[in-house]
Design a protein around this nucleic acid. Structure first.
Lengths: 136, 136
DNA sequence: GTCCTTGCAAAGCGTTTGCACAGAA
DNA sequence: TTCTGTGCAAACGCTTTGCAAGGAC
């Protein structure tokens, strides 16, 4: 897994610093769609001099190199995840948790939107998650 | 159209003030997915004492009553539109303009995500719009 | 030496909150 | 009078920027 990251960095021409590696591995392991604050709080123990600026720097670097994707939430904060086209999202409207769900495919008819070049499609299901259903 | 808004307000038990009416009609007419700033700038002439706080107040009221929806953009700003389930969005990754496109339906299999209650689905196509294609 | 990574402090920007004033009921 | 709509000013929270110190090469 670590070698995986190192290899990706070599390919991209960026250096696999320990900070970058820890952040990447955190994203790869937690699968939590964390905020910058989440990442900072969870890594400050193993990287005692870490700053939020560095978390932002690293994530923006990862975004530029398409290693991660960001999700814009209703709280005007960004959440991050390893780039992975193989899933869609379910957002619970009560607790705002974002869940990964098996990819939801769409059936858009490109002839109905001529002139537009479609490169990607995002599907977000919205509703109530099992945990919140129990509490109702 | 104006009567339409007044009627909706009566149903919802909120007063159809001139400010609220202008903001609603602006959203209904422009179809621009405007930001709060856009709305403020475009209405300040006809509502000289308007403040951004009021625009926020009115939009949040509309959100509570399901008259409008908000879209979270990558710039951490919200954009607003009249509630209308009949369309999906296309976002140009170059100019960031959001276009309304005919509704894109999905084929999610709810048996694959048991326990989740799905109430809504959002589809966003991402790519390059005709205007930006010309410039490349 | 140069280049790059890191991180503190401050600024920036969209949004919300506190509060007060004015108008409607 | 009481309630509601409005709006100024300040606070708030997430993110970016300026810049300097330290380390790699």
């Amino acid at each position: 897994m670590g070698n995986n990251f190192t290899k990706k960095c070599l390919e991209l021409g960026i250096s696999p610093s320990i900070t970058r590696k820890k952040i990447y591995e955190y994203l790869e392991t937690s699968r939590n769609h964390p905020t910058v604050d989440d990442i900072y709080r969870d890594l400050i123990d193993s990287l005692p001099t870490l700053s939020k600026t560095t978390v932002y720097n690293v994530l923006n670097l990862f975004l530029e190199h398409n290693l991660v994707e960001s999700i814009n939430t209703s709280n005007n904060e960004k959440r991050y995840e390893i780039k992975d086209e193989g899933h869609s999202h379910f957002t619970c409207k009560i607790c705002n948790t974002i869940y990964d769900v098996p990819k939801v495919s769409t059936s858009y008819d490109s002839t109905r939107i001529p002139g537009f070049t479609i490169e990607n499609e995002q599907v977000n299901l919205i509703g109530i998650c099992p945990d919140c259903m129990k509490k109702i």
